[in-house]
Design a protein around this nucleic acid. Structure first.
Length: 436
DNA sequence: TCGACTCACACGTTTGAAGGGT
DNA sequence: AACCCTTCAAACGTGTGAGTCG
């Protein structure tokens, strides 16, 4: 694996990547292994469809040492403007519901994962600026392991308790509006509330597959794509927000998180203090049941807005994100009647996103010809069964102002992209190392 | 025995079809 | 015919707690 700092020494030392710093985070303790290198936190985990881009795998240099981890979650200062880099100059992302995330993060965010798939709450909701209004972009979300440890709740806090499980198939969630114009994306916040997390390794629904009791970091990727069936992808930028880090669980461990979720998530309204599903009411129901038939409840059941209950301003946008008035212009989103695109290509990605969501018939298979990454501890990547991303010029249709940075080569080799501060609190990642 | 996981459950929210009015 | 609005039922999203598994 390459590290951008080695490839591009001019980036300096504050590139945000590295092992946890002891004591840096009150909620999430440092990983077990001292000096553990983040597997690929700072590289877009899109190798599920990028790994097959090149016919022959790279010969890898020894992994360079990694710079330190970002400081405590939620307390991270804004990165220095000159340290970020990507190939979409001027583009910045900000986390819309940052306060809510920070509230969860201060306790230690947990995300339920189930066999059938569970939504993330809070959801990643970002607003973007600096896009070319005319150009088209894809918005992607993925979740990568933060370290090589498995965690256990010790009553008061999360403690590392052993090595992490082997890496699972990498999956990427594609925002349903993709591809859409920059104007569309900048018109309103972009919400990923439909993303579902699962612990089912054979999940057929395309949910993001995670291990329980592991720490993860969501990332948002922005990819410039000239058109729906584009053979050439343009600039790429990847963002992560430290406050969105979470531990995946099958049942909540920290009661504080449970209370926060109930308070903030409208779907859990029934569990609030005055809800019929709150513990007191449920206990009462059980007692009544034991005594006899439950009388019809006629008491005025409150609106569900518990006193002091949440006023999650993000929910409206999150949940109603796909409402008609926010739906893209027909020619913008145009996900429906797609022209036939033959052969493996980026078109396949756009036309068959399920392939990258893990639909059974399209699930990429491991490519044994690719050697295992030397420093990641991960298994060989999944080959791109449907994508053959062609780099280079020729009919991309990109504005001249945009560097002709082919998607594939960007992720595979990195590049001397112009620098741009990603937005308040956001850490901007860039694919600067080969994926295999 | 214990921790992690699964499942059924009750309840609230969201969604979209159906119907009626203008 | 084309809208707009309201109603309603089904689907979906929640946390809970009992049961299961290793």
């Amino acid at each position: 694996m390459y590290h951008p700092r080695e490839l591009y020494p001019s980036l300096g030392t504050s590139y945000r990547l590295g092992p946890p710093q002891p004591g840096a985070d009150s909620s999430f303790p440092p990983a077990l292994a001292e000096g553990y290198c983040y597997p690929d936190l700072n590289s877009p985990k899109l190798d599920c469809f990028l790994s097959g881009i090149e016919a022959t795998p790279h010969t890898l240099a020894a992994p360079p040492p990694l710079p330190p981890l970002p400081p405590a979650l939620g307390t991270e200062p804004a990165p220095a403007a000159a340290e970020a880099l990507h190939s979409l100059p001027g583009v910045s992302l900000s986390l819309e519901n940052r306060e809510l995330w920070k509230e969860f993060n201060s306790v230690g965010t947990e995300m339920i994962i189930t066999k059938a798939g569970r939504r993330m709450f809070p959801a990643c909701r970002v607003s973007v600026t600096g896009l070319d209004p005319e150009a088209r972009y894809l918005f992607l979300l993925d979740v990568v392991p933060v370290d090589g440890a498995r965690y256990r709740w010790q009553g008061q806090r999360w403690e590392p308790s052993g090595k992490a499980e082997p890496r699972l198939p990498d999956r990427v969630y594609i925002h349903p509006d993709s591809p859409a114009t920059g104007a569309h994306w900048m018109r309103q916040p972009v919400s990923f509330h439909r993303v579902k997390l699962t612990n089912s390794t054979l999940d057929p629904h395309g949910h993001l597959i995670l291990h329980s009791m592991h720490k993860y970091q969501p990332r948002v990727h922005l990819v410039q794509a000239a058109q729906l069936c584009s053979q050439h992808w343009g600039g790429v930028a990847s963002f992560r927000f430290p406050e969105t880090m979470f531990i995946s669980v099958t049942a909540y461990q920290n009661p504080q998180i449970t209370q926060l979720k109930i308070a903030a998530n409208p779907f859990a309204k029934g569990f609030r203090e005055n809800g019929r599903n709150c513990k007191r009411e449920r206990d009462a129901r059980v007692k009544r049941k034991l005594r006899g038939p439950e009388p019809v409840a006629t008491e005025a059941y409150g609106s569900g807005d518990a006193p002091g209950g949440p006023c999650d301003s993000t929910l409206g946008g999150d949940i109603r994100e796909s409402e008609p008035e926010q739906a893209p212009e027909p020619q913008e989103a145009a996900p429906a009647p797609a022209p036939p695109c033959g052969g493996p290509s980026a078109e396949a990605y756009l036309l068959h996103p399920a392939a990258f969501h893990g639909a059974p018939s399209h699930l990429p298979t491991r490519n044994p010809s690719f050697p295992e990454a030397p420093d990641s501890g991960r298994s060989a990547p999944y080959s791109a069964a449907f994508l053959d991303l062609h780099s280079g010029p020729g009919g991309s249709g990109y504005p001249a102002a945009v560097p002709p940075a082919p998607f594939a080569s960007h992720f595979l080799q990195g590049g001397p992209f112009s620098l741009s501060y990603p937005g308040p609190g956001a850490c901007l990642d860039v694919g600067s190392k080969p994926m295999f």
